[in-house]
Nucleic acid binder design. Sequence first.
RNA 1: GCAGUUAUAGUACAGUCUGGUUAGUACUCGUGCUUGCCAAGUACGUGACCCGGGUUCAAAUCCCGGUAACUGCACCA
Length: 485
Amino acid sequence: MNYEEVMKLALERGFYFPSCEVYSDANAGFWEYGPSGVGLKNKFLELWRRELIRRDGMMEIDGSQIMSKSVFEASGHLGNFADPIIKCTKCNSTFRADRTIAEIANIEIPESADLKEFDNAIKENKIQCPKCKGDFGTTKKFNMMFKVGIGPQEEEAYLRPETCQSIFVDFPRLFKTMRGKLPLGIAQVGKSFRNEIAPRQSLLRLREFYQAEIEVFCNPGRLDEVEKFAEIENTVIRVQTDAEPISMTCKDALESGTVPNKFVAYYLGILTEFYEKTGIDVSKSRFRKLGDKEKAFYAEVAFDFEVETTIGWLELVACNYRSDYDLSSHAKMSKEKFEVMDNDEKVLPHVFEISMGIDRSLYTILEHSLKNDEEHERMVLSLKPYLSPVHVGILSLVKKDGLKEKTDEIFLNIKRKFDAFLDHSGAIGRRYRRLDEIGAPFAITVDHQTLEDNTVTIRKRDSMEQNRVDISKIDSILLESVGFP
RNA sequence: GCAGUUAUAGUACAGUCUGGUUAGUACUCGUGCUUGCCAAGUACGUGACCCGGGUUCAAAUCCCGGUAACUGCACCA
C-alpha cells in the first residue's frame, strides 16, 4: 500500500496522528502514537532486544535527553552539526554558504571556517541569489540542536540530537562496574531532537523522534577475530557499492572486500535477520555504502540500511564505523581516561554504531504489511503475530442467550496474558474487519455451541479460516502462535 | 526556508466562483430491532466549516495575516 493508505489507517485506527492538533499553533514535525502505534512500537522494541541486544550479550541503558554543553563541544555537534547559512535579503530563500560559493565562484571554503571568510568570499565575488539575483545577508550558523536553559540562570544545555552520546560518556563507568569485556555492545532506546528545516511526511522526518542505538566498542586490532561470525556467514545481505544492490552472503561480502572486516559483516548480518523478522520485505533492502561527501562528520566507513517503499528508498538505519572519534574527544574534553584493558593490551576502543530510526521502521512495517484483499473487500494489516498491537479479539456471536457472559469470562481469563480486545456490538463480520485493520492475527468467537460443549471458533486473520477448539486450549494455542520467534 | 496547491465530522468528499433558512452525502462510530460466522437490513442518535483580524445588516463563502498538510526545489548531522 502507499503512503496515503498508511496515513489513513494511522489516523483512523489510532496508530499515529499530529501532535497538539486541537491548537492552531501546533508545530510541524511532531507526531504522537495512539494505542495501536504504541502497541506496535513496544513489540518492535521487544523484538529488537531479543534479536540484537540479548543475542549479542549487550547492555542497555537509559540516559538523559538533556545533556550539558561540554558533551556537544566534545562530540563535535556544536561545531559540525551546524551549517553555514546565507539568506537572500530579497526573496528570503536560504542556501548553504559553502556550497553556493563553491558552485558559483568555484572557491572551496570548509564548512567549519570562520563566518567572515564566507562573507568576504561573497563580497569579493559578487555572489548573488541564484533564484532572484538579490543580495545575501551575512552568513549565520544554523545549528540543528535545540538549546535549553537550565535553572534560573538558564545555563546552556541541549536536547540530544542522537542518543548515543550518553553511551560514550557512560562508557568508563559501565565498563568498570558491569565487568565489561571487548567487544562490548551498549544500547539505548529513546528520543532525540533535531531542529529540521523542513520536517515532512509524518513519521519520516520528525523534529522529535525515537532512536534505538547500539554502540559496539571493540579493539581495532581484532576486527577479524569474531567467533560468532559463523552464525551469520550464510545470511544473505544486500549491499550496494555502485549502481545496483547485490545480494550476497556475509561470507562473500567479507571475502570480496565489499565489507571491510568480520566485525562489521557480523552486525550487518544480524541486523538483516532482525528486519526480516519485522515483516519488512528485505529483498527490497540494501546496505548502501556512503561516499566521503555523504558520510557524517564522525564516520570512517558508513553503510545506510535502506528499504524501498512507495515513496522511494527510506533510510532506516545508519551503520557507522566511528573509530575512536567519540571516545578520544570525550577523553580530551573531560580529562577522564577512556582506555580499557583488552587481555594484556591497553586500548582506546573503536566504535561501530547501529543507529536505528524507530519511527521510520514502524512506517515501513505498516506499508509493507498493509494489504488490500479485494476478493473479500477488506484491508488487512498482515503484521507478524508477535508485533500486532492486539493478539486476539474476543467476540460474542450475539449478545443474548448468555453468550455475552460466557465471552466476558473467557476475556477475563486471558486479558492479562495476551493483548486481547473484547467486542460484543454490531455484526460479526464488521468486527472481524476491524480486527483485520489493526493486525490482530486471531479472533475467538463464542456461539451457541460454546454453551453446550465448551468450544469456541478461532479465526485466522490472513486466511479467514476458522477452527473449533476447546476453551481449555486457547491459552496454549495463543502462547505458541503469538510468541516471539 | 522558497514556490505552487490545499484546509468543512473519525475518514473521503459536496457546498465557496455568485455572502443570506436548520451546512449536505457516503463510509465510520454509538444504541435498539432483526439476522446468527465475515463490512447485510432497519430505526434512532453523536459528530465539522484550521486559527486570528478585516469588509458587511449578514462570512464556511470575499480580503489580509498566521498555522498545518501535500508536491517540487533547497536542506537532511
